[in-house]
Structure formats: structure tokens, C-alpha cells
Design a protein around this nucleic acid. Structure first.
Length: 348
DNA sequence: GTCCCGGACT
DNA sequence: AGTCCGGGAC
């Protein structure tokens, strides 16, 4: 078989396609360094549709880097509530503080300097450097890995760091010197909309199919290769939503680790009976106790299997926060893991 | 329900 | 190698 792959032609096809088909996205409207940075951090491990509403609200609330450097963690957590990977927003604040101290309140404008900043790794540095500053540098995210794996039939495990560096060098050779921004975005856009994960790639409408080795030899659909992931550990918990009159009890999680700095309901290790829960909270004078729904929440490496109770008490404890449902929704960032219980309170 | 997707830091 | 989430496709 004669396999066709012309680098210059592929680049032109990709850029032409992108000019016609680029999605209209909020952060593309005015690609200022700040907006590009905020969007790229939000887009780490997160889909475009999920980011859209968060982006608009974040920019409206925190319009620039000096403001971000001085924003309370509580406010940041609330702006990030439900988006996941909460460390990202705390790193952004640290990053903003470094920008104020060392770079005149702005992001530095080179790949090398960006890479030094908290929360900015190889991909994000490449994305900001190319999209915001026009530097001719690759931005290799999961989309780009998938597209190039298929285009060149590269069969190594794309989760390996060494393989990612190798891809960056390869992609670098394809970037037109003065169009790195459009080229990088085009590759990611193709990966997100045509050369998709988790479903058959839409090769029939792909603008670069005739220069894609994977398509031509029929291997595109089973690339890229990834190492199998290991099983998650399961944690059993009993969620106890404490109520005193019209107020509910929440407490803040540790500032490090899982769901850092977010608020949660009380909980006990393992599955506890109504009687055991009642016994545990007897100091608070339990007036009534009722079953709430079971729930499950999956993280990267852990699964929470939850049982729940609504525990009405007459003697509120002094630790944590007692607040109405309205106050809870307005001011306290609750992770999605507790959604079933937060939703249950709506019916109370 | 089950499987899969996606960057940075330690 | 392990720690950090939430959502989409089926």
C-alpha cells in the first residue's frame, strides 16, 4: 500500500479547516494573556462545555491579575465550586502573586518563564505562549497526543512522560512559524470534534484524512495506546446532615489534600446504623433521625460509597458553621461528591 | 450503572 | 508512581 503523508499539505488543510470551523468560545473573543491563562487552567482535565459558565463568572468577578492576587481563598473556592481539581485555583492565586512581585502584575511572555510558574506545566506554558504571545512552540494536550498518534501511527503509550516529550518535538516540526496560535488550537479543535476520544473517529469528515497514516492503514480507531489504569480504592462513609431548627451544619476540609478548603457535611467512617449515628451524636441531643439516599462518587483514585442520615439535634455543637440552605448555597463551596445530600435538603 | 476522558505536582 | 475531580458516551 502507498501511504500518503505530506507535512505542508496537512498543515494547510488543518489551518483552512480551522478558519472555517473554529468554535465560538468566550476566551477566543479577546485573547488577552489573562483570559487565555484563566481559560487554559480551567480547561486542564475539563471539557469546554463545563468551563464556559465558570469562565465568564470568574472574569467578571476577578478582572485582572492584581485582583486575583488579593482575592480570599473562600471566594476563589466558591467561584470554582463544582469544577474539580481545586488546587488549580489556589495555584492561580500563587501564580498571580508571583506575577505581581516579579513581572509587574503581568504574565511573563515566554514559554520558559511561564513554565516556572505554579500550576503551569509543559502543555499550559505552550498554550499560553503560542495563543497569547504568538511564540512558535507546541502545546501538547490529550487531543494533540491522540491526533498525532493516529496521523503518524505512533503506538507507544501516550501516558508516559518520555513519550509526551517526544511528541512535543514532532509537533514542533509541523508548526508554521507565524501561525502557532491557530495551528495549536486547530489541532486541539480537531481532536475535540473530529478525531474524538471514546467513540469512532469521524474520519469521513476529517480535513486531513488523506494525509493521516492511521486512517489510510485502518489503525486510527484503535490508537492511541494507553497503559491500563489501576483499580480505585473504595471508602465507605456515612454522611450525617445535622440540622438545628432551620440551619444545617457544615465544616471546612483541610487546606491540603482531597477537596482542599471546601465545605462538607459531617460524616462517619464505614456504614453506620441509625442507632450508631444516634449514639454518636447523643451529646447534641438527637431529636429525630431519618434516612437519606445512598450515593456514590468517583474520584481518580478513590470511590466514596455513601449512606446518609438527616440528624435533627437540639444542642448545636460549637465547631463548624450552622447556616440555612440559602446561606449554604450563597457562601460555602460544597464539592459535587455531596450533591445527593445537598439536593436532599431542597426537599426539607 | 460502567467505561472513559483529561494536566500538574509531589 | 501516586494524588488531585467532574462529566460525557453508551
Amino acid at each position: 500500500m502507498n501511504i500518503q503523508h505530506d507535512k505542508e499539505q496537512l498543515t494547510k488543510q488543518l489551518l483552512d479547516w480551522y478558519k472555517q470551523n473554529a468554535r465560538v468560545l468566550p476566551w477566543r473573543e479577546k485573547a488577552t494573556p489573562y483570559r487565555v491563562w484563566v481559560s487554559e487552567i480551567m480547561l486542564q482535565q475539563t471539557r469546554v462545555e463545563a468551563v464556559k459558565p465558570y469562565f465568564e463568572r470568574f472574569i467578571a468577578t476577578i478582572p485582572d491579575i492584581p485582583t486575583l492576587a488579593n482575592t480570599e481563598d473562600e471566594v476563589l473556592a466558591k467561584l470554582w465550586e463544582g469544577l474539580g481539581y481545586y488546587r488549580r485555583v489556589y495555584n492561580m492565586k500563587k501564580c498571580a502573586q508571583v506575577c505581581v512581585e516579579k513581572h509587574g502584575g503581568k504574565l511573563p511572555n515566554t514559554y520558559a518563564e511561564l513554565l516556572e510558574l505554579p500550576g503551569i506545566g509543559a502543555y499550559t506554558a505552550g498554550a499560553i505562549a503560542s495563543i497569547a504571545f504568538g511564540e512558535c512552540v507546541a502545546a501538547v494536550d490529550g487531543n494533540v497526543l491522540r491526533v498525532f498518534s493516529r496521523v503518524l501511527v505512533l503506538e507507544e503509550d501516550i501516558l508516559k512522560e518520555s513519550v509526551k516529550r517526544q511528541y512535543a518535538k514532532i509537533v514542533q516540526m509541523y508548526i508554521p512559524k507565524h501561525e502557532s496560535s491557530a495551528f495549536n488550537q486547530a489541532l486541539m479543535e480537531l481532536g475535540a470534534t473530529i478525531c474524538v476520544p471514546n467513540a469512532a473517529p469521524r474520519c469521513n469528515i476529517c480535513p486531513i484524512a488523506d494525509n493521516c497514516k492511521g486512517y489510510q492503514c485502518g489503525k486510527a480507531h484503535y490508537l492511541p495506546n494507553k497503559a491500563a489504569k489501576k483499580t480505585r480504592r473504595i471508602e465507605k462513609k456515612t454522611i450525617c446532615v445535622l440540622r438545628y431548627k432551620d440551619k444545617f451544619h457544615v465544616r471546612q476540609r483541610a487546606s491540603q489534600g482531597l477537596l482542599a478548603g471546601l465545605y462538607e457535611f459531617d460524616w462517619l467512617e464505614g456504614y453506620q446504623s441509625k442507632k450508631a449515628v444516634s449514639e454518636y451524636y447523643k451529646m447534641y441531643v438527637v431529636k429525630n433521625i431519618r434516612k437519606l439516599p445512598d450515593a456514590k462518587h468517583v474520584f481518580s483514585h478513590i470511590e466514596w460509597h455513601m449512606k446518609g442520615y438527616l440528624v435533627e439535634v437540639e444542642m448545636p455543637c460549637e465547631e463548624g458553621v450552622w447556616c440555612t440552605l440559602e446561606e449554604l448555597k450563597a457562601s460555602y463551596a460544597i464539592p459535587t461528591a455531596y450533591k445527593a445530600y445537598k439536593d436532599a435538603l431542597e426537599k426539607e
